[in-house]
Design a protein around this nucleic acid. Structure first.
Lengths: 169, 169
DNA sequence: TATTGTTATACTCTATAACTATA
DNA sequence: TATAGTTATAGAGTATAACAATA
């Protein structure tokens, strides 16, 4: 078997970036997101919309401030997302008697139905890409990522407390 | 020791997202990028500029098409980046006699000097965040990420061929 | 005064199409 | 006809500041 030189394949030497954690994270995220969004394509659901659907499904009646906090985005960020979900009949905002400022968010029947389908597709996709990893890698990758995500984020605190990665895929 | 309930700490239940590879990648990338860019802050270098500096440093004389290809971005993407680097005297484009269409890119003295400093800062930062991982995790995280980045990218092909991750931090 | 939801705005990142000048 | 570099443009994603209503 003839040895194929790199220069015939790659347009450039990339030895620094090949060892760069930040660049590897960037590229991995691009690839994995592209795959997930392809799974969602026919439903016309964006990443932000999926995140909101998932959190509201697990926390029915959550208000927008807590929703933003849990996803660690700014409050204005979720307004257009919620508008879009509401317009499509997937979620609804309701006023609450005790405090006229807050809106409780719930998924509709079809919102609940959709989020179940999308979660299954995302889980299946995750299983597919995780199959590229060997046993050790698959076992540690999620805990790795949450440790790197640190910044004392709620999610990392949760993983440290509960070992969420053992839930696996 | 009293058991602290999650609800007192987190604004929402996040069990699905805690097990989501895509979300973990997203959050890890945000945190790691934020850290790296803080290391670069005083130099006013963006992520895109750093990538170009690094690739040109390793591939002096590369043209813009190959540079874009190696970073897997579209050709127009690097034009403003190169303009910025050139304006600051960090890189320069030169015409080549054999083909009047192509521009060869080189770093200037101060560009070379800067990229060395930034690479050291990025490597130090990487060492710091990798210190949160245990031994096994640190050993496999880069190979994990490049496998997930797959899509038959040049970088993943390189890692598969050369095992670039053993270069470690 | 502080908080919830909202609007307006701007900045970054990225892709596409089309142009120019060469080949 | 194809390629290198460029321009113009548009669309995501995100953050900030400020506002109205309410507490």
């Amino acid at each position: 078997m003839p040895q194929v030189s790199r220069e015939n394949i790659d347009p450039a030497q990339m030895s620094y970036l090949d060892g760069s954690l930040g660049y590897a994270l960037h590229r991995a995220q691009l690839a994995v997101f592209e795959g997930i969004l392809q799974c969602f394509a026919e439903s016309e659901v964006t990443a932000a919309e999926f995140l909101v659907l998932v959190v509201v499904a697990e926390n029915p009646g959550i208000n927008q401030a807590d929703l933003a906090k849990s996803l660690e985005v700014e409050r204005p960020r979720i307004v257009p997302t919620l508008n879009s979900l509401e317009k499509r009949g997937l979620a609804k905002r309701t006023q609450v008697a005790e405090d006229a400022r807050v809106r409780q968010i719930h998924l509709t029947k079809s919102g609940l139905q959709l989020v179940k389908v999308l979660q299954k597709r995302a889980r299946d996709h995750q299983k597919r890409v995780m199959a590229r990893l060997d046993e050790t890698e698959a076992k540690v990758v999620l805990s790795c990522l949450w440790k790197l995500a640190a910044r004392d984020s709620p999610a990392e605190q949760r993983v440290r407390r509960n070992g969420a990665h053992v839930r696996g895929v």
